[in-house]
Design a binder for these strands. Structure first.
Lengths: 208, 208
DNA sequence: ACCGGGGTGTTACCGCCGGTAACATCGTCG
DNA sequence: CGACGATGTTACCGGCGGTAACACCCCGGT
């Protein structure tokens, strides 16, 4: 009736070993952590991708729901965007290793083979697309812009979030501000520096 | 004196097989394409990463230089940004498979293990960071903002470019416009749609 | 003429990976 | 009791990245 609890146990073990060893953890390692051997894992999840998918669904449930809720929050647009950004960053901050697994696509699969965004992030991108298309008046190109921006924003937050998580250059709220400022056109609005034309790149040759 | 030409040949073969089989192509396949066997590849490039690095340096030379030049172009800021975006998209458009290899980090390496951006893109991110910091007056947070934005913009263009390359939803110039508009705060400036509060997500449960 | 060295190439192997086949063991239900 | 399903095992497969050992061939020095 309920093969669930053992499955949960296995997923817990996978969580643990991935948190400890990072993504790329081997099936053997996960099985060992669970106190068993590989074939059981394969019986439960089919293949490695199945395990990852199960982990994904388990963890993105919360994050995706939180992002979706943040997108629908009845706030000023700027506050809403900041809320979404903060929600995402808080999510990846909580379990960095697991979210690295979820957010970084594996290059090995010959299937779709193209997408820069892992499935979990694709869902977020779609959510953003939907929200933008539904809430904001973008004229004739509405659909195209919403879809492009959904991907673009997701990729932006992915890369920026990953960098922030790794080097922790500032607080989370400050990072949220930096990203929201970028989306708010601060790059376009800021004044030029006096020396507008710089002489040459500091390191044109990597010398490596 | 010049072990270069044979090296070039091997890189050509690697290019070919990667263009045909996508990233993830095995060393055996590359060696076979070159009409030789694995150990020779390893003599020349050390390991797979070395081969990838060599390919990277070969291909990103042009792209990176082009981006750097575009960043230094004496244009209006908006035009300059569009020029950079177009340069990047044109680059990945030319050899999709190769650039996929260059732009998607391999999760297997246990070294830094974190960065969402492959080395080639890290370089572009640094270039953007440098240009922003040098050209635009961002006040006290200058360095932090420039670095965060460098990563953010790179990730944005990576994800958006990848999507565009895969589904070709519009012309390149249109895509450039969409991204520049996003950076120019069009998301922030656009009007609300009349039905500002949407009732519910069209698909709150993936039903999968 | 001989020999040595560097580049080119090979076969054969290692350890590890994801994945599978075959077999053993237990609890439960008819 | 017997059948069955879940749980578990050992032992294996093919392929991966990577390496060791050996073979050839040409070219230059004595």
């Amino acid at each position: 009736m309920d093969p669930e609890p053992r499955r949960e146990q296995l997923l817990n073990a996978a969580d643990r070993v991935i948190q400890r060893e990072g993504p790329g953890a081997s099936m053997n390692a996960i099985a060992a952590e669970a106190g068993i051997t590989k074939p059981i894992l394969y019986r439960h999840f089919g293949d490695r991708n199945g395990l990852v998918r199960a982990l994904t669904e388990r963890h993105t449930g919360g994050l995706l729901a939180a992002v979706r809720a943040a997108l629908a929050e009845p706030l000023e647009r700027r506050d809403r965007v900041e809320h979404v950004l903060d929600t995402y960053l808080a999510g990846i901050e909580a379990r960095p290793q697991v979210y690295r697994l979820l957010t970084h696509p594996e290059p090995g699969d010959p299937s779709g083979a193209g997408n820069a965004l892992a499935p979990a992030l694709q869902q977020i991108a779609e959510e953003i697309t939907r929200a933008v298309a539904a809430q904001i008046d973008l004229g004739a190109d509405r659909e195209l812009l919403a879809e492009a921006w959904g991907r673009a924003i997701t990729g932006m937050v992915l890369a920026a979030g990953d960098w922030w998580l790794e080097s922790r250059p500032c607080s989370r709220t400050r990072m949220v501000q930096a990203l929201a400022d970028l989306l708010w056109g601060r790059l376009a609005a800021a004044a030029d520096l006096p020396s507008a034309v710089l002489p040459a790149g500091p390191a044109p040759e990597p010398t490596d």
